[in-house]
Amino acid sequence: MTVATSATTPARPVDRRPPALGGFSAAVLGIEIRRVLRNRRTLMFTLIMPAVFFLLFGLPQRGQELPNGQPVTAWIMISLAVYAAMVATTSAGAAVATERALGWSRQLRLTPLRPAAYVATKVVTAMVLGLLGVLVEFAVGAAAGVRIPADVWLVAGLAAWLGSLVFAAFGLFVGYLAPAENVMQFMGPVLAILAMFGGLFVPLELLPHAFQQIAKFTPVYGVGQLARAPLTGAGLDWVALGNLAGWTAVFGLGAARLFRRDTTRV
């Protein structure tokens, strides 16, 4: 009799256990990345727009050279790669704002997924999208005739990409600050202004002195300088490094604090 019953009802798992790694998995990551890539808006702003900027503002500079003989187009390409990566990582991080506004994070609290695993997924997704932003910009640059040494491609690319971690933290920070579905609509202009201060659109040397001094304390300055250093041969810039470390700490700790408030708010 008991055999017949257990055959008709699903066997109850007796050895219940929580998921490994708090629910963080390659499968979830894959789904998250596919979600991001399916969002036309994100692709527009992170992949297409920076590439179009290069074709509009970079190509006319063809033939111009930096003081050390490297092409100006490479300078612009690397700057726009930083811009692409920062928009990508910010928007991926800020996705938590949308998911909080929709109530999805509340739904997640009824599953075994740990909040830390959720945030880790968002950060890795942001970095994958950031890498894509850098690669697309470099591919467009290379296709348009930018020629620089292989080690410059590599080091500048890595600096632009890894430096964009500060914006993944920034995105999360904003995401936990403002649970709004359309958070990127006001983040877009903010990022553009920050990019301006970071010297991504116009070299800071061409701007007024006061502007240059303020720029050193804004969050894009460090990444921009570090990513272009391999090209300009500027060497290790301690001001830029300090800027990057400082802002990463500010946004990282800020996001962590808001995240903790969000998950313990019961």
């Binding site: 219940r16 929580p18 490994a20 399916r38 929709l102 109530g103 999805w104 509340r106």
Partner: peptide, 21 residues
Amino acid sequence: GGLLKDLTVAETVRLAAHFHA
């Protein structure tokens, strides 16, 4: 308790299935 509007019904269930052991 909201749902993600950009996913399909099956994708939502498939995603959530990965949260369980």
